[in-house]
């Protein structure tokens, strides 16, 4: 009588198997812990910030927060009622109620009004610095990928790019301060901030652009050159158009970085507070470039370190952080989405 054949391949439980499971869950746990931490930060700021930015009544968005400049908040008690008013409203109130002249109030700077000048400043800073960085970075990448042969100079350039990427942002800030603000005498200005930020993000843009240029098949270049096109004609007509989407999407990550950095603009471009908007009170066009601006990241730094933490200040703190985080997150997710789209579209 035949016994069923012995199964040599059956699974053997044992210490190794258990250990294997433990490790698997450890790795998995680490991964999700990281995501959880990120989610917690994000969630906390979104939850608290949304309370400032959105309202329950139409139009559901706190318009004043987006359109006004920061003001001091005055908290005081008047005729048994607690009042919270911004600077201008407080002055108007005092005019309307002469008996309130000597009312005892507590004031918190920057805690009323909005963050409009900061948004404007950040947009200007990002736009200008990215324009400079894209111009320099794409040109460098074209040279390195299309023209350069392996020479000592090229190796040196690559080394410089690699090292530039590791320089701390505060050192860029120091450099920008020493060179643009002091040596060139530009003072704290948009243009000093532009160049400082542009140089900081340059390695990111160069690397991204080179990757995109490399992704264009060699056949396009050879085919074009074999038809008697010059190098530049080949690059302009048959390389750049196909690399450009990639360059732009990857550079968006650079934009997110530029928008998020505080240290380089602290002493090159950002003011704690400035009454005028960038386009106000210019006597000549060049003044535009030589004025400091308010910027979201710097404003967050100011409101989180220079004023106390309490229920009145928390609104502007969380609100600003929320708007800023949302801005950066939008930029970052745009790049992630665009990149996966492009990957699907360009296949040759």
């Amino acid at each position: 009588m035949d016994a069923p054949p012995e199964n040599h391949f059956r699974s053997r439980p044992g210490a190794i198997r258990a250990w294997e499971n433990v490790l698997h869950w450890l790795f998995r746990g680490a991964t999700y812990l990281v995501l959880l931490c990120g989610g917690l930060v994000f969630g906390q700021i979104v939850w608290r910030g949304a309370q400032t930015v959105f309202t329950t009544r139409a139009p559901f968005v706190n318009v004043a927060f987006f359109t006004e400049a920061p003001e001091s908040l005055h908290v005081f008690e008047y005729q048994g009622q607690k009042q919270e008013l911004g600077d201008r409203a407080f002055n108007a109130f005092k005019v309307a109620h002469p008996d309130a002249k000597d009312v005892k109030d507590e004031s918190y700077v920057y805690s009323a009004g909005g963050i409009f000048p900061c948004i404007v400043g950040t947009v200007l800073l990002v736009a200008g610095s990215m324009a400079i960085a894209l111009f320099l970075g794409v040109s460098s990448a074209i040279y390195l990928n299309e023209y350069a042969h392996d020479s000592a100079l090229v190796r040196f350039i690559r080394l410089a790019i690699l090292n530039l990427a590791g320089v701390p942002s505060i050192v860029f800030g120091l450099f920008g301060f020493g060179m643009f603000v002091i040596f060139f005498g530009w003072n704290v200005s948009l243009i000093a901030g532009w160049f400082t930020l542009a140089f900081m993000v340059l390695p990111v843009v160069i690397t991204a652009s080179e990757e995109s240029l490399k992704a264009v098949p060699k056949g396009f270049r050879e085919g074009s050159l074999a038809l008697g096109a010059t190098k530049w004609q080949t690059i302009r007509q048959n390389v750049l158009p196909y690399a450009l989407p990639g360059i732009l999407t990857s550079s968006i990550l650079g934009i997110a970085r530029v928008a998020g950095e505080t240290a380089p603009i602290m002493f090159t471009a950002a003011y704690v507070v400035r009454d005028k908007l960038p386009w106000e009170g210019l006597t000549k066009a060049s003044d535009f470039f030589f004025q400091g601006v308010m910027a979201l990241p710097y404003h967050i730094y100011v409101v989180s370190s220079k004023i106390p933490q309490n229920e009145y200040t928390a609104r502007v703190q969380y609100g600003t952080a929320f708007v800023f985080l949302l801005l950066v997150a939008l930029i970052a997710s745009a790049s992630i989405v665009l990149r996966s789209r492009l990957r699907n579209r360009y296949k040759w």
């Binding site: 990281v34 990120g38 505080t262 967050i300 989180s304």
Partner: peptide
């Protein structure tokens, strides 16, 4: 995404 959270 976490990498994109600004340090400030």
């Amino acid at each position: 995404f976490i990498a994109a959270i600004p340090s400030v």
